[in-house]
Design a protein around this nucleic acid. Structure first.
Lengths: 192, 192, 192, 192
DNA sequence: TATGAATGAGCGTTCATTCAT
DNA sequence: TATGAATGAACGCTCATTCAT
């Protein structure tokens, strides 16, 4: 693993640990086992690491999705699995996610956010197009735009679920069920 | 207007202009026309004001919605209007909104986020229940849960739209149209 | 009790409680049950109360001494009793004592310290003069100067004893015994 | 000289000039010729430097004493010299001394005070033991305890003397004379 | 006298960034 | 490349004091 990756990994770890607290560069370098100055050989400023972190988060998410979702399954199954993976991912990384988002907010990097999500949009867009072709969903939709809507809906729902520490799993399951109905309707998913 | 409200108003203004990191307490008090120490009579720390700001943002949003949406209109019309108002609101306040969210992230206050949204959820939940009763939407939904999903979907979509400064209105209109289809389908809105 | 006295009493209480921590004017007024501004009707500044506190401390000490020491007793007995009372007093008030001393240090009031001790010096000077007259101690001493030395010696010894929280009473007793020998020798106290 | 020592030296100088309340960390670092942040690499807070200062003060005192006192001299002479050196030292450093003591009072460090004095107690304890062996003082004393009493007595006496700016040297000489008598008696110093 | 909200100068501390090695 | 001690600008917060009521 390159030193740069090591720094990014360490940063993610520290964000997860320190959670809500503000993370210092000195924490990151300590976790990465490098000297304070070394950080600046790879990133020009404290916030400059944020896009790299966001990239990794999306990479992890997309990798998980590819692993857990079988694109030969019926679309409805794939959709259910997508919800599961995204809930799982949100649960594990939601602190980091919101911190990174916050970090990007205070810089010129915010613009990159959508760009970073692009591979994810792309993947889901392809899946939707397949489903359209296979007539497993309604026909007249724009696959890419709908992919963005779908991702936004699932992600926000997951965030609402895990916003409270109180992981009342039963409550979460209810919400997940409602979500599945909501998006299946939205896409006009065929059942049989 | 109470002094506390004056501080909150001033904070919103300054956050809109400068962002969260770049905003000093001294900027807020200057804008509010009060002394530095006075701020701390009302809020124990710089970040402690965030929930109060979020409250105001939601108040404004809900007030706008009440003003612009006629609950006697067909549900479909109300939904269209809701999208318009929320897009408008996101456009105007999206900086503050994400800053406040970021600010809450770095504190123990994040938990309050959902609580603050409660009045909005409540309102839309009532509207949905009416629509269910009037058979303008599909029957088997849970109104409150669906309200949360709906709000999350519209809000995220609006955020995606205004994430870039480049306000390509045509592009935005396309996305808005796709969104309307998406949510109408999701709710099973009746057309006639 | 006058309001001024109430403030002084409250200040002593707060000093005892907060001990080592810096005490704020707001703590004092809260304890005294008065408004912040009222304090300044009686003392022109935060530190201005220090001499008044010192006065009270000495008053208490001298009152205790008068109560516990019988000036008709043999001088040696009086001396033993004096040691007891001063140790007791130091134990109870040593935090306040050092804080007041510190408080006076940072002002022009430090000069008053000796002045405040004057009644105590006076009292012990008289006792010593009696002892000289009664030939219970060596003859050639200057009563007033020796009183000051004696008080300083006993007080410092007591402070050394209670500097540590660890109140090893056995150790303290040993030191007290050594002290008694030391001062009896110093004064040439007659035994029989 | 190490950077830490440089900071301590500078702090002593500044405290002598300005007092503890009026001394800002920025004054200390300016005098030390270092950056503000550097101070905090060596001391975690403003007050945390106090024990280090106290250490230095005692070091200086003990060094002076070793230089000025000939341990081959008769004990009585050594005692006279000790009084001289301690008066001298108190005169020069009394502001810093009481400030440091006050500073320690407001922290958890107060406990260290006796610990810091330890080398001084040790030295005088040895001297006393020698005197006992040579039968220059009374025989039955505990050397270490008596050393503490002796130091306390002389120090307090010197502080009483220099508490007033008005250095009436004649008055001070009188008191010093009375002090010498007092402690010689206390120790049973032999004259011939 | 008494109040207590308001003041605002002032200070301790932090932490991103630099640079000599 | 790598180090980590040093930097110093920047800022949150405190708290003694004031003053309108």
């Amino acid at each position: 693993m390159s030193k740069k990756d090591k720094i990014v990994q360490a940063a993610i770890e520290v964000f997860k640990e320190k959670g809500i607290e503000r993370t210092k560069v000195s924490d990151i370098v300590k976790a990465a086992g490098i000297a304070q100055g070394t950080y600046y050989l790879y990133f020009p400023s404290k916030l400059a690491i944020m896009p790299a972190i966001a990239d990794v988060l999306i990479e992890i998410l997309v990798a998980d999705i590819r692993k857990q979702i079988n694109t030969d399954d019926p679309f409805k199954t794939q959709l259910d699995d997508l919800v599961e993976v995204m809930y799982q991912h949100t649960k594990e990384y939601r602190d980091v996610h919101s911190l990174v988002y916050a970090g990007l907010s205070s810089t010129e990097y915010l613009q990159q956010w959508e760009e970073i999500y692009e591979p994810f949009y792309e993947w889901l867009g392809d899946v939707l197009e397949n489903a359209i072709r296979r007539e497993e969903v309604r026909q007249e939709m724009n696959a890419k735009r709908t992919a963005k809507l779908l991702i936004g809906t699932i992600e926000t729902s997951a965030e609402q679920a895990y916003l409270y520490d109180q992981t009342d799993e039963k409550e979460i399951d209810e919400q997940k069920k409602e979500l599945r109905t909501f998006i299946n309707q939205a896409l006009g998913t065929k059942n049989d």
